[in-house]
Amino acid sequence: MKALFLKALIGSVLIAGISYAEDFKPNGSLGVTQTFYGNSGKYKTESSHPSAVLNYNFTKAWSLSLQWDRVWNMYNYTNGENEQDNSFSGPKATLSNNHGVLGNTKIKWSSSLMVENEAEFNNSNQTYILAQTAFDFLEYIPKGEYIQATQFAFSPMYVYGWSTKGASGHVNTGVLSLLTNWQLPANFTFKFNTYLFREWYEGSFEISSSNQSYKTANYFMILAWLEYSKELYKVNEQTSLVFNFAGGFDPYISSNRKAAGWDPFISGNQMYEWLNPTVSSGDYKSTYALFALPQLEVVYNYSQDLSLSVFAQVKYSNQVWGNTEKDWKLQPQGGIGITYNF
């Protein structure tokens, strides 16, 4: 079955490549970013986050993304009070296809298949497969004078995860999501995504309350953030100072189970920021992470294909979530990035 799938996939790629050979040139980008995080007040959150992303469009319809993220503490984590264990490694690969419009409609159809491995370096390792398809109704959304949609897609998703190291178990997740992006006045953009999903647990993936464990759970999640970007000063033709901002819910999530012990994969996969609140005071019955992240960035375009950036930013967010949300702290952040387009 696996060999048959690979043959079909290779055949589709070759056919697509022949069809678009005359007017398409494969292209892509390679980006590397190194981010450093400081402490959040009394909370020990100091950590380092290198990230590498390779995007390659090998036909007009097919693209491949390879990404690796590594996060580690910049201190000796002892599981003491007000400490956050950031030990994490997450390589993933995503194959995407743009199917074009659906039949005689204006609905844009796309699909993707992602495989990710998550290691927390505590004798725990999980692998996830995320299959997603999206139907974008953007062309049917009226365009206002001040507000215009740039995405309005219904996207079913399916996630299968299993333990590849440590206690055995697996999880199935069925998701129905609405993915929207909006262009606002004064160069503001707004993302508002909603997710309804149900999970079925087995073994190490089960969630528990004080007196019982659950085989299933239902969730409702919102991811919503406002973004802004403006060039403040142009030093020369190659160098500029830019102000960026992002802020909002990351995420708001509620569940029919007052239980803890498991973070839904889809939450971490879709959220904006890399670091969760430091302390989980309970469960996902009804909770949220709320953040604001202003940034100053110096961008240097060495050539048309190569650019460098240095940035400094500060995150303001709640460090406790679960039964309550509290301890709003500032966390200094900074880093450097390089992007090569080919």
Rank of each mutant, 00 (worst) to 15 (best):
residue 325 E to Y: 11
residue 131 A to M: 11
residue 308 L to I: 09
residue 8 A to R: 12
residue 314 V to I: 13
residue 216 T to E: 15
residue 8 A to F: 05
residue 94 T to P: 08
residue 270 Q to G: 00
residue 175 V to H: 00
residue 50 P to L: 01
residue 65 S to C: 06
residue 271 M to H: 09
residue 47 S to I: 02
residue 234 K to N: 06
residue 46 E to H: 11
residue 239 T to N: 15
residue 153 A to W: 04
residue 48 S to M: 05
residue 250 D to Y: 03
residue 209 S to P: 12
residue 112 S to V: 06
residue 332 P to R: 00
residue 314 V to C: 06
residue 191 K to V: 11
residue 24 F to I: 14
residue 74 M to Q: 15
residue 254 S to H: 04
residue 269 N to T: 00
residue 241 L to S: 05
residue 212 Q to W: 05
residue 147 I to E: 04
residue 170 H to N: 14
residue 40 S to C: 04
residue 219 Y to C: 03
residue 96 S to N: 13
residue 266 I to W: 01
residue 124 S to E: 12
residue 111 S to D: 13
residue 97 N to Q: 10
residue 69 D to L: 04
residue 270 Q to E: 15
residue 245 F to K: 04
residue 305 D to T: 10
residue 30 L to E: 05
residue 15 I to L: 11
residue 255 S to P: 06
residue 37 Y to A: 00
residue 287 T to R: 09
residue 321 W to A: 08
residue 141 I to M: 14
residue 88 F to T: 00
residue 164 T to V: 09
residue 32 V to L: 14
residue 317 S to K: 07
residue 325 E to K: 12
residue 157 M to F: 04
residue 133 T to D: 11
residue 306 L to M: 11
residue 51 S to A: 13
residue 167 A to E: 10
residue 58 F to D: 15
residue 340 Y to F: 14
residue 152 F to T: 05
residue 159 V to L: 06
residue 246 A to W: 00
residue 288 Y to A: 15
residue 257 R to A: 09
residue 86 N to F: 02
residue 322 G to E: 06
residue 275 L to F: 06
residue 78 T to H: 14
residue 123 N to T: 05
residue 319 Q to S: 08
residue 205 F to P: 02
residue 254 S to A: 11
residue 17 G to M: 11
residue 218 N to T: 10
residue 203 G to W: 05
residue 210 S to P: 06
residue 26 P to K: 11
residue 124 S to I: 02
